[in-house]
Design a protein around this nucleic acid. Structure first.
Length: 265
DNA sequence: CTCAGTGTTCAGTG
DNA sequence: TCACTGAACACTGA
């Protein structure tokens, strides 16, 4: 689930449950992979009794601002998730960390595949990996001319360049494919080969896709029917858009790209 | 049984 | 140093 819109939805959920409240109980499951070098004991001891001042996000990263440092920072990897619930029995199966607010509200972070990371950092936004991130589209993108200059230095296909978090923070596999589809650009095109007009379209579509996905709470059922998103999966060889255009799947830059030859040049 | 998957990192190369 | 490529990571579900 976790591309920018999902993480923003998680941020809003966590903020509603935790902002202004004290953490009266904390449980951390032993997992040396997800907890990057932090013991469960240190996590619980650090967080218990703290007041949550805010929940922040940048790209696909989330962190809590507390009344005392260090603060917890989260990356959800491929399968990480965050949910809130009132009943302890609803703790998710692959939970890693559970926070209980003084209201009784519970927030859990789970991760089946364990590619996610939970860190304790003194100042998350000014430390790697968050400090290494590039532009978060929700905070705005540089003007087309400046973006064109940045892309002109990249010879790799535009698809993996869109996935480069040090350039576009929060863009994941489906957003990159969606943006290229809507902008009418083939994913294989060297980034440096895009015209300024194409960069302008790319920029505009990136802003539109991210804004819309966030506006509907990352609920894909509510994405516009015209989006490639609804048609890109499924195993059948004859995947088609709602206009019956053929959808091709191939590996580009190490990831599966879905694209529509008749619409993307 | 095999393979793909909403992601990142690291080693090796140019 | 930088840009790029491909493999590795861990696990579930089709």
């Amino acid at each position: 689930m976790p591309e920018l819109p999902d993480v923003e939805a998680a941020r809003r959920l966590a903020e509603r449950a935790l902002r202004g409240h004290r953490l009266v109980a904390v449980a951390a499951r032993r997992d040396p992979i997800v907890f990057a070098g932090v013991s469960p004991g240190r996590v619980t001891a650090t967080l218990r009794g703290r007041r949550v001042l805010a929940v922040r996000r940048r790209g696909k990263h989330l962190w809590l601002e507390l009344d005392r440092r260090p603060w917890p920072a989260f990356h959800f990897g491929m399968s990480g998730w965050l949910e809130t619930y009132p009943d302890p029995a609803d703790r998710p199966r692959y939970w890693k960390l559970e926070l209980v607010a003084d209201t009784g509200a519970r927030v859990a972070v789970s991760d089946t595949r364990r590619f996610g990371r939970i860190r304790l950092q003194h100042d998350p936004p000014h430390q790697p990996p968050i400090s290494d991130l590039g532009f978060d589209p929700l905070e705005g993108l540089p003007p087309p001319a400046e973006l064109a200059t940045l892309l002109a230095r990249r010879r790799a296909p535009i698809k993996p360049v869109l996935l480069d978090q040090s350039l576009f923070a929060g863009v994941g596999n489906w957003i990159a494919d969606e943006v290229l589809f809507q902008a009418g650009i083939r994913p294989h095109r060297p980034a440096a080969s895009l015209s300024v007009a194409e960069v302008r379209r790319l920029r505009e579509r990136l802003l539109a896709v991210v804004t819309k996905a966030v506006a509907v709470g990352a609920d894909s059922e509510r994405f516009p029917r015209s989006w490639l998103f609804h048609y890109r999966w499924g195993r059948s060889a004859d995947r088609r858009t709602w206009r019956a255009e053929r959808i091709v799947r191939e590996t580009i830059g190490g990831r599966t790209a879905a694209w529509v030859p008749s619409r993307q040049r």
